[in-house]
Structure formats: C-alpha cells, structure tokens
Design a protein around this nucleic acid. Sequence first.
RNA 1: GGAGGAGUGGCCGAGUGGUUUAAGGCGACGGUCUUGAAAACCGUUGACCUCUUACGGGGUCCGCAGGUUCAAAUCCCGCCUCCUCCGCCA
Length: 429
Amino acid sequence: MIDLKLILQNTEEAQRKLSLRHEDYDLAKIRELAEKRVRIQTQLDQARSERNRISKEIGNLIRQGKTEDAERLKAEAGLIPSQMESLDQEFHQAESEINGLLLQIPNLPDQSVPVGASDQDNKVERVIGHPRSFSFKPKDHIELGESLGIMDFEAAARIAGARFSLLIGDGARLERSLINFMLNLHTRDHGYTEILPPFMGNPDTFLASGHLPKFEQELFKVQPFGWYLVPTAEVPLTNIYRDQIINDTDLPIKLCAYTPCFRSEASSYGKDIRGLIRLHLFDKVELYKFVAPDQSFQELEGLVKDAGKVLELLGLPYRVVSLCTADLGFSSAKTYDLEVWLPGQNCYREISSCSNCSDFQARRAGIRFKKSGRKGTELVHTLNGSGLAVGRTMVAILENFQEEDGTVRIPEALWDYMGKKEINPSKKL
RNA sequence: GGAGGAGUGGCCGAGUGGUUUAAGGCGACGGUCUUGAAAACCGUUGACCUCUUACGGGGUCCGCAGGUUCAAAUCCCGCCUCCUCCGCCA
C-alpha cells in the first residue's frame, strides 16, 4: 500500500509517478473520501468524548448515593448512542471504500527506475560472462532432457496436465543438488538464515504481500478451506513479521527459503508452452531482507550480487537488467532481473527478479521497527529476489554445457552434490 | 471427530459492569553511586487516528467481529488461534 498521507499532501506528485507505470488511478476520489472520513471522525470523537464525560459523572453520582440525579443524567445520555450510530456507519463506509481503492494501487517507482512504456525499455546494466560459441547447433533443454532420459513431459501431462514436469534419475538429482547448492551458498557465505515455511497461506497473508486482492486469478486456491498455494516464498516470508515491531538492532534480517511455487499462469496463454520454462509448479530458492529504509537501495545491490554469485559459480553467462517503470511488479519500487543466456533459445531469459518493495508491503503487513532511545516506530523496507529459479537453472546448465553427442557436463560446483561430472544419454524409462 | 481450558502492553501477569486514567513484575532507557562495571536505589518507558503554529487536547486499541448498557477487558452472540485429554492418522 502506498502512503495515504502522500496522496493527501501531494496528490499530483503521486499521480505523476503512478502514470509512469501506464496505469490510471483515481487519486482524487481517494482524497475526497479521506477528507470526508476525517470530518466524520472529528464529529464522532466529540460525541464519544461527551458520552464518556457523562458516563463518568453518572458513576460518581451513583457512588455518592445520588441516584435521582444519576437517573436524570442517564435520560440525557441515552440520546447520544443513536446520534453516534449513523456517524459510525458513515465512518466505516468511507474507511472501507478508501481501503478498497488503496489496495488496488501499485507501489510508486523509485526515481532511479528507467522510464519506459514496455519491456523494450528495460535497461541492460551489465553483462557477466560470455556466451559460448558452439561448433554444432545447440539443442534446447527439452530435446536434451528427453534424450538423456531425465525428463518425461508426457508422463507429467498424464499425471497432472500441461505445464507440469517430471524429472527422472539424474534430472531429479540435479534439481535437488541445485536446491542444496543454492541454500548452502546463501546460508554459509552470504549470511542468510534458512526458513522452511508453509507452502500455502491464508488470505490475510496474500493481502499483505500484495498478491491479493488484485491478482487472485494468478493463484491456486485450496477449496473448500480458503488457503492459497504460494506463488513464491516471498509471500510467507513477508508474513513472518506481520503486525510485529522489530528492534532496530535486529536489522537487517536476511532470510532464504526453498519452496515449490504454484502459479496459474492465467495470463500466459500460448507462451512457453513446452519445457521447463513456464510451469504451474516449479522450485525456487528465494532471498528476502527486512531492512531500515535508508539501507534498502544499497541492500538491493547486495541482493543482486548474492543471486548473481550462483550463476557465476555455475559458470553461466548472464546479464543484469533494470526494469523500466512500465514493467515493474505491483509491489516493487525498483527491480533488477537477472537474465541467463540460453543457447537453445539463443537469447537471455529471466532467472531471477530482485525487488526493493520499499515500505509498500511493510505498510500492508504492519511490519515496523523501533529505534532504541527514540519514540515511535517506522515501517521497515522489504526486499526479495530469486536465488535462483531452480528449473530455469537446470535449463541453463543443460543448454550451456551440452556436447555434440548429447552429453552434459556438470559444473564443478555441483560435482559433490551430483556424485558425477557429466550426464550421459541413456535409455528412457 | 469428541470433551475441556486459555488468549490482557516488547515479555510475564492482576483485573467478573462505574476511583482502571489497565495494578505489579521483567526487560529496555536515563540518573545516583563507582577508576570502570555489577549490585542497590531513583526516575522514565505502548501503538494508532485526529485537532492545534506551538503548548497541549480529544478519540481508538485487552484474539477478531457484532450485540446489551448512560457506561464493557469484564455480560451476551458468532468466529479465529493456541493448549490439554480421548479417538483416528503420515
């Protein structure tokens, strides 16, 4: 949620920043409702104050035994609740309308975000590593996976349907190895604490992270219970500290988590139908930070570095892209995508998305921190980033390290995890 | 699934309709003392909304949401969460 005060005090500025996202929002309407709410609240507070005063007096009279005077006052005070009732209704009406509108509004882009109209305007910040040149035509991961006998999309479709995967033997082992490798790296070398959260959550949880109410069609709902399956570990991790006040000495808090991710891909019809690129269920290791506001952009750079380290240790070429204003996610103030080189597709593909959500999620989730020796609390800033999408990492390994005969070399960083240095073509199950 | 019990401030905990303006303790912070620290003693110590240039004032918050009442942490209705026992179960 963006700050209502910002809308009230600087409507035009907020409107201008939102328009950079190429979406329209009626801030004037919110402003009008908010001003109305304050008027009503003032009246309501006065009525309550009067009621409290009289009630206290009645109490005093009763204690002094002056029951007749008390009865007279009771008759007088009896009129107040009915006056308050309609005000109270108006107040709640205005408040829920304001909230309903506010929950639909995305975060404001930071001023360092490139202004643009589509993903064409994203800015390449840097390129790390060099795409390998092949002496043969590189295969894509689907062909490789099936000839190696480590994937069976037909069986996956039989079990669940389109956009699911089934890994066999070294394929399954590679997925598991990657998860362990990533978690070990981030916990041992990068200082993150590992979390294994629930893979589903209640509606409040998804509201706090910004996935509800606007994006319900992207989620799988568990009926009849009302839970949703997590589309990313960002959702449960955000909510670890929902409605909590954190000591500033505990910041920054750095967490990482492996979870499966469940996405309906409702708005992706026709895109990446085959293979491991876009699935209803995939594995991801997520990085997450709760930080003090003045640290968040610096911490974002660190997050990108931590995610990039995975690719570097695996020897995969990639580039870092700063998303433009039109391509930013709903909760994000600034996002870097890491895009890995895929020879099979002859292009860079997103393998990590690292965002600074500033105070947007913290406000929805009520996550604040307290500076010792200072009055009051302040909202934390939250950051999240993939470290990395596991399936897409497997795609990148298969496609980048393939040989002409279909053999795939395993990156050295994974040798111990895999117990071997290459995967050779073998019979299908 | 059955039967009980419980949810109060950062934490523990008192409080069964009106001197509760939520006692007391712990923790934290400040001070006295001390070479320094500890101990002891003294003091301070919530969040949120709102009015005010300011000083300061008003309001809300005792799991959540309703209700009764002039007045609710306290009584009533519904819900949520946690705990204990029984049953079932990976």
